[in-house]
């Protein structure tokens, strides 16, 4: 067995264990939030999933943009493979963020959906990813596909902060978790669970990304072999 795949197995198992520990902390070990109704108290635990997925969707999108820039600069196809792998994960994490946010919004705000800035921004991010994949699927030539989607990824990612600012000025009712003046709105016990969740999810993303990237490279290899064999 290759050395790299042995490392990957170790990482995969570690990330699985990490996710179990994160769930344990999130559901059982983290203390209850105080001053909330019972419904809200349970719903509050969603932040241990909601915030990591939100962070990862942005990280994934950022990785897509960096890989896209690297592709345009180097013209090496593996950068495009990395970009598309990360974008696919980003799409999934964006969906997970929206879903978990919606589950929390029902008891907290009494609606499934609201045009809150972050929620709206994530919806736009979701649509940016969808557009990214629609653009990719509309071309056959891999080199052109890689160039076009790289350019689009750069535009799309850079527009996200401006979109966020614009919707934020529009209106806001989202709880500000990280207030620069007061520090975190979390007790120490909650913080532990929060950061364990964040770390576990990030490792989970990295492992998925490696697997997905290897799969993408393998697909290219198969295409190449098929061509050489004259299929």
């Amino acid at each position: 067995m290759e050395r790299s795949s042995r490392w990957l197995i170790v990482l995969t198992v570690l990330s699985g264990l990490g996710m179990l520990v994160a769930i344990l902390f999130a559901l059982l070990l983290a203390p209850n939030a105080v001053g909330l109704t019972p419904d809200e108290t349970y719903a509050q635990r969603i932040i241990y999933f909601h915030v990591p997925t939100a962070w990862l969707s942005m990280l994934a999108f950022g990785v897509t943009m960096v890989a896209s820039i690297a592709y345009l600069a180097s013209n090496k196809r593996h950068w495009d493979s990395l970009a598309v792998s990360s974008a696919e994960l980003g799409l999934i994490f964006t969906l997970a963020t929206a879903a978990s946010g919606s589950v929390w919004a029902k008891p907290a705000w009494n609606v499934w959906w609201t045009w809150d800035p972050r929620l709206t921004t994530y919806t736009i991010v979701f649509l940016l990813f969808v557009a990214y994949f629609m653009l990719r699927s509309a071309m056959e030539d891999p080199a052109r596909r890689a160039r076009f989607s790289s350019v689009y990824a750069i535009f799309a990612f850079l527009s996200v902060p401006i979109t966020f600012m614009s919707i934020r000025w529009w209106r806001t009712i989202h709880p500000v978790l990280i207030d620069p003046n007061e520090g975190f709105g979390l007790s120490p016990g909650m913080m532990t669970a929060f950061f364990i969740g964040l770390a576990a999810f990030t490792l989970f993303y990295v492992v998925l990304l490696i697997h997905r990237y290897r799969l993408e490279r393998m697909k290219e290899q198969v295409e190449l072999l098929k061509e050489q064999l004259g299929y």
Binding site: L135, A138, M139, E140, Y152, F155, A156, T163, W170
Partner: peptide, 25 residues
Amino acid sequence: MAVSTRAREVLLPVLLFPVLLPVLV
């Protein structure tokens, strides 16, 4: 980009509007 893809014109609004949102707002 859109005109040199298979979808041609149909693709442009899908690409453009999410990126354009801050300007519209």
